[in-house]
Each structure stands twice: as C-alpha cells, then as structure tokens.
Design a protein around this nucleic acid. Structure first.
Lengths: 112, 112
DNA sequence: CTAACCTACAACCAAATGGTTGTAGATCAG
DNA sequence: CTGATCTACAACCATTTGGTTGTAGGTTAG
C-alpha cells in the first residue's frame, strides 16, 4: 500500500503542524477534554497573545488535526485525528520497511 | 507512560525533519537501499545543488533519523529509525487517548 | 605528483514562520 | 441599548528555512 493517497503537500502540513510544542500541547489538551475548548479558553493557558494561539489553531485545522465548530460567539475546538492517523501510518510504513530489512540481514547472517 | 523522555526540542526537530518532501524521500530511499548512499549518490537524484542535499542530510542526522559513516572519501548515509520510533510512539499515544475517549462516549450513550 | 572527486562550510538571498499590535464584526449579559 | 467578550484578520517584525554560489580540505585514480 502506498499509504493512502496523501499528497506531499498534505504530509508537509501534517508534520509541520506537529513540529511545534505549543501546537502539540493544544492537541494533547483538546484530546484530554470532554467538551472541547474555545479558542480563548485555549489561549488562557499559553504565555502568548490570543492572535498567536489563533494562528496555531488555524495551522492544526488546515492539517486536519482539529476541527472548529461555532457555538454562539465561541468557536469550539475538538480533536479530529484523521491527520494523526495519516502521519502515523507513514511512520509505520517506514518502520515496517526497516524491520523487514533488519530481518533479511539477520537471515543472511544466520543461514550463511 | 509519558512517551520516553523526549524533550520538546527533540520532537520539534523530529517532526520538522519529517515535514519536507525531499527529506522524506531521502529517508525512503535510504531505507530501501542495502548498502546505504553516499551524499553525492543521494544528491544525484534531486534537482537541487549538492550543498542543499547536504543540508537536508544534516537535518535528518540531527533528528536521529539517519547516521553518516565515513568510508574513504565518501560519507555513507544509513537509516537510523530511532527518531522514527519516537515520533510514531507519540502519535500512537495521541491516537490511544482518542480511541479511549470515543469508547467512553459510546459507553455513556449505550448504557445511558 | 596531479587531477578529479567527495565533502564541509561560509556567505548570501527570498520566502515562510512565529510572534506582536491594532481594528472590526458578532454575540452575549445586564 | 450598551458594554464586555469572542473571534477574525491585516500589517508589521525578527528569526528560521531552503535554496544558491564559492572556497577549501581530504581522498582516490592515473
């Protein structure tokens, strides 16, 4: 399998979204919440401006790692691990190839 | 478990390293090779300068995704999926939390 | 020895990133 | 209605990133 049909650009965005500690923390926080977080609810936890957190949320949304849902004047952020799965499957594939390779080398060494 | 002891900076570097198509291609190429690639052997495959590929290799090395081994005048690049595993384990953990949450919600709905 | 090759690294440049402040439109509370 | 709150978005700035060219040092081939 060629790992879904995820385009290069999609993967770029996915891994790039995951490459920032604040964004990973937002993911963890949202995953660990029951009802989700409003954007300002999230922003309250970080030592940066609201707008900065807003941008991080936008990056995560583009990468399909979260979704936003309007509720009144708030925008509720929830986990949407579709992107998560895609990224993990690529790493799985890489690791699979690696393990296969290690196994082959061991075979060659043992069976001589 | 708190996913090894990988520091934020380590994860930043890991995911950032994975967020570029050329670098992912280098990983795939090296994983798929038997003896590894020299840096210029790699560079031959990309429409960019040798120095650019050299920089990509350096990024991957810092992220523990590959290793370089000097052999004569060449530098042999090999896969070193330690970083790979770390990244995958974090995504696994995220997905685990998600699945747990989905299960809990289903329980609440069914046992109502 | 000399020439070719492989690598390292510095200096430079354009574009993207992560942050800021400021402005403005909705929505809710009193 | 009015004021406070939540969000969106633009403009700006410093730093990082991904690329370039150029120079220099080690290693191999002839």
């Amino acid at each position: 399998m060629v790992v879904d049909q995820l385009s290069d650009a999609e993967l770029d965005g996915l891994f790039q979204a995951l490459s920032d500690g604040t964004r990973r923390d937002i993911i963890a926080r949202v995953l660990g919440s029951d009802g989700g977080y409003s954007v300002s609810g999230l922003a309250a936890h970080y030592a940066m401006s609201f707008a900065a957190v807003q941008k991080h949320v936008a990056v995560l949304e583009r990468a399909l790692l979260i979704t936003k849902e309007k509720r009144g004047r708030e925008q509720i952020v929830r986990a949407h691990p579709e992107g998560l799965g895609k990224a993990r499957r690529l790493l799985d594939e890489y690791e699979g190839i690696w393990r296969q390779r290690v196994r082959r080398i061991e075979e060659i060494l043992t069976e001589g």
